[in-house]
Design a protein around this nucleic acid. Sequence first.
DNA 1: GTGAAAGCGCTAACAC
DNA 2: GTGTTAGCGCTTTCAC
Lengths: 313, 313
Amino acid sequence: MAGVSRSTASRVIAGYGAASATARDRVVAAAEQLGYAPDPAARALATGAGVRLVVAVAGATPTVLNDPYVDRVVRAAAEVCAHQEVGVALEWLPMHAPVRLRRLAEDRGVRGVLMVNTTELILESVPAALEGRAVSIGIGSRTVPSFDVDNGGAARTIVGHLHGSGRRRIAMISGPEWQPCTRRLVTAYREVMRAAGLPVRLVPGDFTAPGGQAAMLTILERWPDTDAVFASSDAMALGVLAALRRRGIDVPGDIAVAGFDDVPFAALSAPALTTASHPVEQIATAAARAVLDRVRVPPATAYPSELILRESA
Amino acid sequence: MAGVSRSTASRVIAGYGAASATARDRVVAAAEQLGYAPDPAARALATGAGVRLVVAVAGATPTVLNDPYVDRVVRAAAEVCAHQEVGVALEWLPMHAPVRLRRLAEDRGVRGVLMVNTTELILESVPAALEGRAVSIGIGSRTVPSFDVDNGGAARTIVGHLHGSGRRRIAMISGPEWQPCTRRLVTAYREVMRAAGLPVRLVPGDFTAPGGQAAMLTILERWPDTDAVFASSDAMALGVLAALRRRGIDVPGDIAVAGFDDVPFAALSAPALTTASHPVEQIATAAARAVLDRVRVPPATAYPSELILRESA
DNA sequence: GTGAAAGCGCTAACAC
DNA sequence: GTGTTAGCGCTTTCAC
């Protein structure tokens, strides 16, 4: 219709390769009029580019997919992908499964991989074929760029705030030990406590509200004089709030409580939760864009976390 | 490698068409050994099947995508799609945009469409080319099967419970009027109130917590003697709880509060929220499967909603 | 700068 | 039941 060959049309539509201004104009006009849009499958087949972005969530069991945090990542990725005629798939990545990663690398349908909550062990087994097509929300490696919130800084800010507002017996509820982000939060907490000459009171949690509730009970039993709790996720912090309410302990009067994530409900709890922001959507969007656009990205991008002061601390 | 032709291999791998037991075995064995997996793009190109399932969320503005409910739908769909080498894309569907739907219908990359929160108007403009490939989470039409929770029944149960526990001045906070699901809830509420000979106290809401808060203030002002509130979403109910707390009004002592959805945080509020379950994941999974498997589904599948009794009502 | 021709990996008629 | 053949719609060398 534009009176040019397929090749010329293809070059114009794809946006690179030589084409005279006149040819370009005619092709664009014809495409416009025809409502033409390239078939992503055909394009993927010809270029070998892949049509799916897979979000791979690491964890011990498939239940890790069942998390509002994952929902938000997938949603953000799906939104980015929609503009590029790419779809998102969600998969569980067992803690040590090089096979799984190899399969992803060899699957010609896979455009790229967005890893979530990954570990050093998993990162080591990322096949070379995935290089430049894999990014991580969390820690990264030489071959896998990282997009992450500045966990350590955020934890320092929170614990510092607790300390600064007069609390001295500050306990922390951590996440699962195997998670690198947990380790960073714990390290930051330890540093601040040591610098202030205060004792460390650490209890493991599992990022769930019931887990937070249980952890709070443990803290109360072990260190009854605790006057502040830093839970490393809002879900756990809300569990903590529930436990304290049940015990008739006043927050923040008797015990201050701080969370981490700033989930929507954090503003609605009673008392409203003091926490640190976690720009999940922003991070996921940037990560998804990085793999789709195949642009060079720095090995690590840290997103600032902001202290959200509300009533609980 | 299996010593058969491409076609035979293709038939075996695809799972239909004739093939002798021996040929089948040899192909399967060879595929196993080679770690062979069909290229979805090539397959999509050859069959014209499409590689993307698009989740199209109807609403006045693109901000409708910004909703935990949507997150859950996308997550569930992405999980189903992962097994079928299909990806999920997320798009906003303007209230009246036949063009948008036509584009989706013509896009050969689109395997099917999963509509969310759709309206009669939108359903009418679903192109014939999408028939059998489009399903709706919410209301349906002759051509688009519906997968939905039994809203009306749920509302009747909730308002019935309020009434049954002695409440007589029951107000309701609805959702946006254009939403069909809102209309069904309102109708059910009206029916129960009329049957009980009670006055209707209806205030519009927007499904957000701040909206619920504002609506509660309106109710308090207009009908100060209200003794129960049914909010048509948990987010609004949580806003209601916050407003009442601020006013020093006891829940459920002075006013009973019920929500709708049973979001994870509903169990964690103070007081814990009485609400109705909404099996979003189950619904989304079934809807996604229906379009991927291209099986005949009944025009409407209603999922039961269960009354979740907690402290607030 | 442009076009002809050769695939990308798979499926689907159709003849055997 | 099986193989041959012809594409699906696009990109991409490589001559011109």
